[in-house]
Simulated scan of single mutants.
Amino acid sequence: MTAACLMNTYKSMPLSFVRGEGAQLWDDTGRQYLDAVAGVAVTNVGHSHPQIVAAITEQAGLLLHTSNHYRIDWQQQLAARLTQLAGLDQAFFNNSGAEANETALKLARLYGWAKGIEQPLVLVMDNAFHGRTLGTLSASDNGAARLGYQPMSGEFIKVPFGDMGAIKQAAAIYGERIVAVMLEPVQGEGGVAVPPPGYLKAVRAHCTQNAWLMILDEIQTGIGRTGRWFAYQHDGIVPDVVTLAKALGNGIPIGACLATTAVARLFTPGSHGSTFGGNPMACRVGCTVLDIIEREGLLNNAAGQGERLLTLLRDALAGHPNVVQVRGMGLMVGIELKAPVRDLCLMVAQEYGVLINVTRGQTIRLLPPLIIDDGDVERIVAAMLGVLGGTGRD
């Protein structure tokens, strides 16, 4: 009955979870589920990890909040660790991925302003998703999410994802007005779209050649999801700006924008801020998440189990009449269907006890915690094969 008091922004399934441990969740009837979506790429180290529980408990009894008018030691520690891992120099903390992306877009605007460009443009990608604020919606390409919020900002030029020729064509048309390219290394909401080999390197080279900023949205891909700390590390490049959120707090809200010194120094006192961003609790949990991933070897596990999951799914679904492609990187896997299956997420949960997600209407998105083992992978594959039916083989 109390659901009537909530604004109607989510189409929630009739499931309510009361407890989690590792990769498992339990609903209010006591039934157990394998969480193969991890709160949409959030609980990378699993639910109720003892080290995170201990950090939250202790910090709650010490200090939750002061303000950024004072030095916050945990914030400085997390900034130092993230910038070292990313190959960048400075960090700004906020509370979500959308806020992190707004920070990056502000930096792009300041970058253009410093160059004397009155109407700077940022190249973004078809099928991208960067958040639900008005600014990040303008940079995104999701018709349903944008409906009713028009007009969108005209500061963005959209080009096809993975098409280097389109970027060069836009450069020829808009010239010096372009100040940055913003993209996801793997498009999550866009259907787990993986770019062609060499694409990110080519974008990096083109940005350097044209003095553009390369901004990478690693909200979904960052913090180990693809088997590296950051997805761009597979290509041996370093962007100018990177945004993070989701897995950095394992459920505690936190976002981060990392940048080179040359870009970060565009901010000055008073030019940006966040009341709750970088608070002691969130930053301590962020440091704890990094500790766990390092100590438990979860980057290697994500890479190994991700490859195993892809291989088993491709073999099991080869020739399936309703499967277009199985693709992914690390533990970020998409199964694109020719036609949507109605109530698929609820069906998989009810019949197989596995939680999944569907994005862009007909791509099954699998984002299990980085801690999954062989048995979990086999259970996911069995659920997918079961719910999608036979492969059409003899």
Rank of each mutant, 00 (worst) to 15 (best):
residue 268 T to A: 12
residue 269 P to E: 01
residue 270 G to P: 07
residue 271 S to E: 01
residue 273 G to R: 05
residue 273 G to M: 01
residue 274 S to A: 02
residue 274 S to L: 01
residue 274 S to D: 05
residue 275 T to C: 07
residue 275 T to Y: 13
residue 275 T to S: 11
residue 276 F to C: 00
residue 277 G to T: 02
residue 277 G to C: 02
residue 278 G to I: 00
residue 278 G to K: 04
residue 278 G to M: 01
residue 279 N to C: 05
residue 280 P to Y: 01
residue 282 A to R: 03
residue 282 A to M: 02
residue 282 A to Q: 04
residue 282 A to C: 08
residue 282 A to I: 01
residue 283 C to R: 03
residue 283 C to D: 01
residue 284 R to Y: 00
residue 284 R to M: 00
residue 284 R to P: 00
residue 285 V to R: 05
residue 285 V to K: 08
residue 286 G to P: 06
residue 287 C to E: 12
residue 287 C to Q: 13
residue 288 T to M: 00
residue 288 T to S: 05
residue 288 T to P: 03
residue 288 T to L: 01
residue 288 T to I: 00
residue 289 V to K: 10
residue 290 L to W: 03
residue 291 D to P: 06
residue 292 I to H: 11
residue 292 I to C: 09
residue 293 I to V: 15
residue 293 I to A: 09
residue 296 E to G: 11
residue 298 L to Q: 10
residue 298 L to E: 03
residue 299 L to G: 12
residue 299 L to A: 10
residue 299 L to N: 09
residue 300 N to M: 06
residue 300 N to Y: 11
residue 300 N to A: 14
residue 301 N to R: 15
residue 301 N to W: 06
residue 304 G to S: 13
residue 306 G to A: 09
residue 307 E to D: 15
residue 308 R to M: 10
residue 308 R to E: 03
residue 308 R to H: 10
residue 309 L to G: 07
residue 310 L to F: 11
residue 310 L to D: 07
residue 311 T to H: 15
residue 311 T to I: 12
residue 312 L to Q: 15
residue 312 L to K: 15
residue 313 L to W: 10
residue 313 L to M: 15
residue 314 R to T: 09
residue 314 R to Y: 09
residue 316 A to F: 12
residue 317 L to V: 05
residue 318 A to L: 02
residue 318 A to M: 04
residue 318 A to D: 10
residue 319 G to W: 07
residue 319 G to P: 05
residue 320 H to R: 11
residue 320 H to W: 09
residue 320 H to Y: 10
residue 320 H to S: 10
residue 321 P to Q: 14
residue 321 P to C: 14
residue 321 P to A: 13
residue 321 P to H: 15
residue 321 P to Y: 14
residue 321 P to W: 14
residue 322 N to M: 09
residue 322 N to P: 09
residue 323 V to D: 02
residue 324 V to P: 05
residue 325 Q to P: 09
residue 325 Q to D: 14
